[in-house]
Nucleic acid binder design. Structure first.
Lengths: 212, 212
DNA sequence: CTGAAAGCTGACCATACGGTCAGGATGCAA
DNA sequence: TTGCATCCTGACCGTATGGTCAGCTTTCAG
């Protein structure tokens, strides 16, 4: 039990408990959805009494909001890949890699995000109308420039972005289906690499950025 | 009220009520998830007393199961497009069209399906391990043959299928996000057509079935 | 016409859930 | 050491939900 439970500093206590709660919440929300998740389940998974959750997060909604915002941050970070790039090959490759890595490392977060959007984004509507829209518009502009410069075919930038989101996110959200079709086993390192390579090749070739 | 409520035949009553319930359930399950959906909400939307739902569907689980199986049927029908085709251009085009049409006409069903899979397919696991697996294996074989016949590049058939599923399903599951980024308006006929064309062009070009 | 089967429903119940709170334990600054 | 702020939690509460049921109405075969 109290093997290495030397006295913790207040700061640490707070940080660690919040972290444990958020991690547990992410998993439970991903597996059961907002409505199906219970504070008790989250508490058990976090190894804390239920009342303690309410000490850190007043309501279920507030906890959920924190989880969703967390994943949105991660999501946005991957977005930077686009900016540093000099052309579609760099940019889109890096973006696909980054988003696939998120799908692999944060499948629960991805599912929560998907769930949130599917249910009409009750929490994230504001972000979608501001941050996300701005980000998208910016990337559309970049892609448009690449097209003008003859670096790729004239593909509708928005639909291209949707395709990138869809394809990469799919490996998290539908991971269970993919796993089932993979003989019940999670994708291996090699299979993940192949997935990435396939996606990159098809899309980059498809938009005329790579020679056919 | 009772304007055209001439006596109904028993059969009709049963069929119509079940239909109304399933339709309402599909919508509520899509919007709230299984856990967030309530029988009361479904009953209200179907215009029936709650107790009446339980007359037709004993439990919430049973109702949910029916909804999920319904959408799976529709999903499988689109699958036939693949078989009649003589090559990737026909087959994949038709499949994309069919799946996009499902995303457009049955967004709620698509969301329920996505939700089901995201939560580990508690209801559909059997189908996934039998019907879906067989279907997938069959299509993989077809694609493999197309590759052998030189009708397309050697792309991993499974990842190609995932890409098709992901890209088309995205327009239903993330419809709210797309709508928000589209200025809060649903995609027009024309935009749907453009979406389809873009997807088809990028993928068919990407796999080397169309000249770059 | 009649009786039985099918369809319907308001009222009810047990449970589970989100949330509260009083009061105890613990760290930490002075 | 002391006092206080933070941290913790068992016990509790009101409500909403899935589900039941007794008894009503409607259809329809014979």
């Amino acid at each position: 039990m109290a093997e290495s439970t030397r006295p913790m500093r207040r700061q640490d206590i707070r940080r660690e408990n919040e972290k444990a709660i958020l991690l547990a919440a992410e998993k439970v929300f991903a597996e059961a959805g907002f409505g199906g998740a219970t504070m008790q389940l989250i508490a058990d998974l976090a190894g804390l009494p239920k009342a303690n959750l309410h000490y850190y997060f007043a309501t279920k909604e507030e906890l959920y909001r924190s989880v969703v915002q967390n994943i949105f941050e991660i999501w946005l970070q991957a977005a930077n890949c686009f900016d540093a790039a000099r052309g579609p090959i760099d940019g889109i490759s890096a973006y696909i890699d980054a988003k696939m890595e998120i799908s692999r490392r944060h499948p629960d977060g991805s599912k929560v995000w998907a769930s949130e959007v599917m249910h009409g984004a009750p929490v994230l509507q504001d972000y979608m109308e501001s941050t996300l829209r701005e980000w998208t518009d910016g990337r559309v502009e970049i892609i448009r420039r690449w097209i003008e410069e003859g670096k790729m075919d004239p593909v509708d930038p928005r639909h291209l972005l949707y395709m990138l989101w869809a394809t990469t996110q799919h490996y998290a959200d539908f991971g269970h289906q993919i796993e089932t079709l993979n003989g019940g086993k999670a994708l291996s390192d090699r299979q993940w690499r192949e997935a990435k390579e396939n996606i990159k090749r098809v899309i980059l070739t498809g938009i005329g950025a790579l020679p056919a």
